[in-house]
Design a protein around this nucleic acid. Structure first.
Lengths: 338, 338
DNA sequence: TGTTAGCACTCTCCGGCCGAGAGTGCTGAA
DNA sequence: TTCAGCACTCTCGGCCGGAGAGTGCTAACA
């Protein structure tokens, strides 16, 4: 595409993302291309419309980027917006003061992204394909009831109440916990399975079975933590003035169960993924764009972090800020050993 | 108030809560008072309006209950709606399959309330005025870094990374943990403080200090868990058609920090609290009604569970279902020892 | 005295109409 | 290739008027 056409497309996207009003040739001329006539711009606009990058809400309205217009923009025209120091500082402070556990951190990360991008955000907890056990603990609740506490990689605590077939005192359990720790701590989940197969005695086998059950649950990701925040930001946007639009987005967000899957699908392999309007598989996200990246303390442990907003989104700002938070969060989590 | 006036007020509330349309004398006559003329009903309506229980959106519209109208209704006219078996079963299933930890349970409870009342819900975790320690555990992360794990009453896990001044091996920590358990487990938080004052040696004192810090945080409730769900239900209501209304509610809900305080204020002493429209302290909840009750495994451990919806809410249904979930959740939590 | 039919009145809602304004596409000239 | 000029199209907001819903008042009736 010729330079000038690109410049005009860029200008239209920029203008429309800030004003939310279809942009006409005159507005472009006066604000971006003073030494071009509006007629020239008009003919360029018409060609861009023929190419499918722009559309008109109606015959005598200005132009609006189409989904492919945005796509072209993010693929070829966008340059990352630098982040103001104020925002950088905000991000740093928020992450610095975040809790040292995964849940708390993920929540804080989602909050921060929502705040700095002024859109809704989603975050899933970093998760490796295999869980690693850091520590096992057993607490006696009743004579035949034990609370099993697992500390996983990422300082992730998991607990489960186990009703045992034989009674056990806290002293018994303490000894047993020490044994399990020797065998399991620092090991990946398949070590647990191996130990389970090389079956020891009754209670130990029983508890090992539960350990494995917890790990399975975690690894299958069915219980994977996904949080969202900042829906209120969306409500400020004119495209969500009729509440049915928000409704659909909220339904996607509040259906936490499917969100994990959705995120995984979307993120694919790449480290930054932008899904625009009709590119979304879910029809409820029509008119919305999703920007996703990964984050996590190590290369093995990755979660998804994303922004959901109207397609008319300040992509360059969103991307740079999202990535900044992702980077910051990754560093912070590595530092905390979370 | 005479019986007939009450009946008419009740009918207006009932009609309006289901149809969301101002109700006129004819509608009342044909559907509720066949052997009364519409003129008679009109004069009664006029008197109810004089009393401040009804209002007219405009001169020639039907009547709409005012906040005091709703107040009179819930105080004197409402009888609890029986819960269909289908709903009862749903509640039971949801609670039965809920996770056995507080966080998971609270989330499930909020979800269930949102689902059965078709409104937005809030829930705060059950919490006593004093935390009780069930178990302490110490895990070595780095030579001078310890993960402190506290199991509180309610199977509530709390963790904190502690950087110690002196290095300690896992063996040291295990011994120390045993000592702390002897001293603290089963005891209330002030025992921890007493132990801390009767200062032992360096590392032990250091960790005890952290234990107390965690307990303080918990008891002050600043970090108290509050979840919400079902905002999507609100968006179905015509009063939230303009998104600014949802906006305000969402802001209240997403400001988790203040929500705890708000809930505590609202619930006061009573076990069921209904706050209608202008009775709300927060101006952002104008036009909304909040129905709150308490729940928890024991009398000492109580959380708040509530419904937020438009003032035009099916109060009798909401109250009976909310209370059913609260009762169910309390039983289930007692059963699980959560 | 309470109830009711009748009636005039008020106000909203909705569709149609119209003019202003914005923006376009086309054409012919530089 | 660019540009000025112009006719054309479409939305938007305001205005009008009729239909409809609902009220309050009045006078008559049980």
């Amino acid at each position: 595409m010729e330079n000038r056409k690109q410049a005009i497309l860029r200008a239209v996207v920029h203008e429309f993302t800030t004003s939310a009003v279809p942009v006409g040739s005159q507005a472009l001329q006066s604000r971006y291309f003073v030494n071009l006539s509006s007629a020239t711009i008009r003919s360029e606009l018409a060609e861009l419309a023929d190419l499918g990058y722009l559309a008109q809400p109606h015959t005598s309205a200005g132009r609006v980027p189409t989904d492919s217009g945005y796509r072209y923009f993010v693929d070829f025209l966008m340059d990352l917006e630098p982040i103001p120091d104020r925002v950088k500082a905000y991000i740093r402070d928020e992450l610095q003061s975040a809790p040292a556990d995964v849940e708390g951190m993920v929540e804080r990360v989602a909050m921060t992204v929502a705040a700095v991008t002024q859109n809704a955000s989603v975050a899933s907890a970093p998760q490796g394909s295999q869980a690693r056990i850091k520590h096992v603990d057993l607490v006696s609740l009743e004579p035949q009831e034990v609370l099993l506490i697992l500390l996983l990689e990422g300082n992730l605590l998991r607990q489960q109440v186990v009703n045992t077939t034989e009674p056990a005192s806290q002293a018994d359990l303490t000894v047993l916990a020490a044994r399990l720790n020797d065998a399991l701590s620092g090991r990946a989940s398949d070590e647990g399975r191996r130990r389970y197969d090389g079956a020891p005695l009754g209670l130990e086998k029983e508890l090992l079975g539960r350990v494995i059950a917890v790990l399975d649950l975690y690894e299958k990701g069915t219980e994977n933590l996904v949080v969202h925040d900042g829906v209120r930001n969306l409500l400020r946007q004119p495209e969500f003035a009729e509440s049915s639009r928000v409704h659909q987005v909220l339904e996607v967000l509040e259906e936490t169960r499917y969100l994990t899957v959705l995120l995984r699908q979307l993120i694919g392999e790449s480290d930054l993924q932008i899904v625009i309007g009709s590119e979304n598989t879910s029809s409820r996200l029509q008119g919305c764009a999703v920007v996703l990246t990964t984050y996590g303390p190590t290369d093995r442990l990755k979660g998804v972090l994303g922004v959901i907003g109207p397609t008319r989104m300040a992509y360059s700002q969103t991307v740079s800020r999202l990535q900044a938070v992702a980077r910051g969060a990754s560093d912070r989590m590595a530092e905390l050993g979370v």
